[in-house]
Write a protein that binds this DNA or RNA. Structure first.
Length: 506
RNA sequence: GCGGAAGUAGCUCAUUUGGUAGAGCGGAAGCCUUCCAAGCUUCAGGUGGCGGGUUCGAGCCCCGUCUUCCGCUCCA
């Protein structure tokens, strides 16, 4: 385990050193759980996006794209359940796995105490009959006084604690009061957490007109609210899918896991709309499809596994994660969820618009069911990067650091290197560069010895290096060097483009 | 969130008990050039995380603060 953490640290350092990923706002000490993609990182990220988009949209006639705005009407998040589920101080009981609002637990406890006082008074009233003075009793009875004082103490502590968001004190109070879970009867509580999962901001330049709106915590809702627009304008027939790549934002409580858990992240999602009753068929279809996609990246199968959910979110009737073995262990990289008709149904209810589809074959109108595939772009980036990173000891005793990034995803596809910086080799190399740069992301480099330049390209994950030497001037051939095997072969300049196309597509 | 450790050049680190900062690697320019790091020359780059205190004098001592890392906690 220790060596894996070491590895993770090395990958993070390498990512920074070689221009893949920088901590956000680093010169101001950074911004926690936010990262920037550097010159080579953005290339890799774009390549992953492009590959996903092609796999989903271009290769499926019945899947179309969408790019919905990050800002959406606040009602969207009401309908989706995000507002209610994530805005209160919550606490979980570890035994019953039940989640409670912490403020409700305490207030219920206060009610119980008040109840006790009531009962005490009732009993006394019976005992004393007509001579009973309720007011006097409450002012003098020791047990009543004790409870009253307790209520007073709780209130004086509880409300200020809520006011200043002192969740630790709220938990302490719950523990000190000995509040138990009504289901498990245990006092085994988690920390109290404020579930303001969503970031908010103001829309409207004048303050008084300002409306609080949220930065979307998932891209899916942009698809759901456009369901009718897309279905009608693109004349889609069920089953069909809508795909989208975009940023989403979550106020994570604990981040600290590099790209794995960021406050601002990017999702690649596809919502597949199906007939009610057929959702399980499509759910298992997409589970298979998505796993195949991951394996097509050339990453070994043993790095992946499925994790089926037993506990389901409020909107799902089946859910599985595809997990990847990061250096920090197996973690979710993609989720495949059968979301039922929950979302479209909720939007239909809240908006009053019919979110329905008329199925001509069935001669029936219905709210479609949805199967979602949702993959974390940043997590995929991290998976590719951590799978690619390796340190090698070579036969001659030297070492090298290589990023074995699949060629089709590599930031730089090919480096063009004159063997030495004179005898007209740079000029010849430039010529070659000019013929290739429209089709491939190229990198030209003439400084330092050829060996050092190869190593630099290895560290960037550049799969191929073309070297222009003296023989090139004579017969128009160059050597092409393979990053992984370090082997070279000599090919004709006129064949370079074809050879590259074949290799890069692999 | 709690506890521990650390913050000196792009990176890795050094600076013996406080006396106004160095190395290797990397980078840039040039030389040489035999296709797989470590040949030669030159150069750039640090208000020692930030703020305050003690002292004639602080990177080194004290306090505060921020950030990072590790552990625990937590994790749609």
């Amino acid at each position: 385990m220790a060596s894996n953490e070491e590895l993770f640290r090395k990958i993070i350092a390498h990512a920074k050193e070689y221009g893949f990923v920088f901590p956000s706002s680093e010169i101001y000490d950074g911004l926690s759980a936010v990262y920037d993609y550097g010159p080579f990182g953005v290339e890799l990220k774009n390549n992953i996006k492009e590959y996903w988009w092609k796999s989903m949209v271009q290769y499926h006639e019945n899947i179309v794209g969408l790019d919905a705005a990050i800002f959406m009407h606040p009602a969207v998040w009401k309908a989706s359940g995000h507002v209610d589920a994530f805005n209160d101080p919550m606490i979980d009981n570890k035994d019953s796995k039940k989640r409670y609002r912490a403020d409700v637990l305490v207030e219920d406890f206060i009610l119980k105490l008040e109840d006790k006082i009531e009962k005490e008074a009732e009993k006394a009233a019976k005992r004393f009959g007509d001579t009973f003075d309720g007011k006097m009793f409450r002012e003098t009875n020791p047990r009543v006084l004790e409870n009253l004082q307790k209520i007073q103490e709780i209130k004086q502590r509880f409300y200020p604690a809520l006011e200043r968001n002192d969740l630790a004190d709220v938990k302490l109070l719950i523990e000190e009061l000995g509040i138990v879970c009504p289901i498990s009867g245990s006092r085994n509580w988690t920390e109290v957490r404020q579930f303001n999962l969503m970031f908010s901001t103001q829309m409207g330049s004048v303050n008084e007109d300002a409306n609080t709106i949220f930065l979307r915590p998932e891209t899916a809702q942009g698809i759901f609210v456009n369901f009718l627009n897309v279905q009608k304008s693109a004349r889609m027939k069920i089953p069909f899918g809508i795909a989208q790549i975009g940023k989403a934002f979550r106020n994570e409580i604990v981040a600290r896991q590099f790209l794995f858990r960021m406050r601002e992240f990017e999702q690649m999602e596809m919502q597949y709309f199906v007939r009610p009753g057929e959702e399980m068929k499509w759910y298992s279809y997409w589970k298979d499809e998505r796993m195949k996609w991951h394996l097509s990246l050339g990453i070994p199968a043993e790095k992946y596994r499925f994790h089926d959910h037993d506990k389901l979110a409020h909107y799902a009737n089946a859910a599985a994660d595809i997990e990847f073995e990061f250096p920090i262990g197996f973690k979710e990289i993609e989720g495949i969820h059968s979301r039922t008709n929950f979302d479209l149904g909720a939007h239909q209810e809240y908006s009053g618009k019919k979110m329905q589809y008329f199925d001509q074959e069935l001669d029936e109108r219905y709210v479609p069911y949805v199967v979602e595939t949702s993959i974390g772009l940043d997590r995929t980036f991290l998976a590719v990067l951590s799978n690619a990173y390796r340190e090698e000891k070579l036969d001659d005793g030297s070492e090298r650091v290589v990023l074995g990034i699949p060629a089709r995803l590599a930031p730089i596809k090919v480096a063009i290197l004159p063997l030495i910086k004179k005898d007209g080799l740079p000029e010849k190399a430039r010529e070659l560069m000019d013929t290739l740069k429209y089709d491939y992301r190229c990198f030209y480099e003439e400084k330092d010895t050829i060996g050092r330049r190869y190593r630099r390209m290895d560290a960037l994950g550049t799969p191929y290096c073309l070297t222009v030497d003296h023989q090139t001037l004579k017969d128009d051939t160059v050597t092409i060097r393979d990053r992984d095997t370090m082997k070279q072969e000599r090919i004709r300049i006129t064949d370079v483009s074809i050879v590259l196309r074949e290799k890069v597509a692999k």
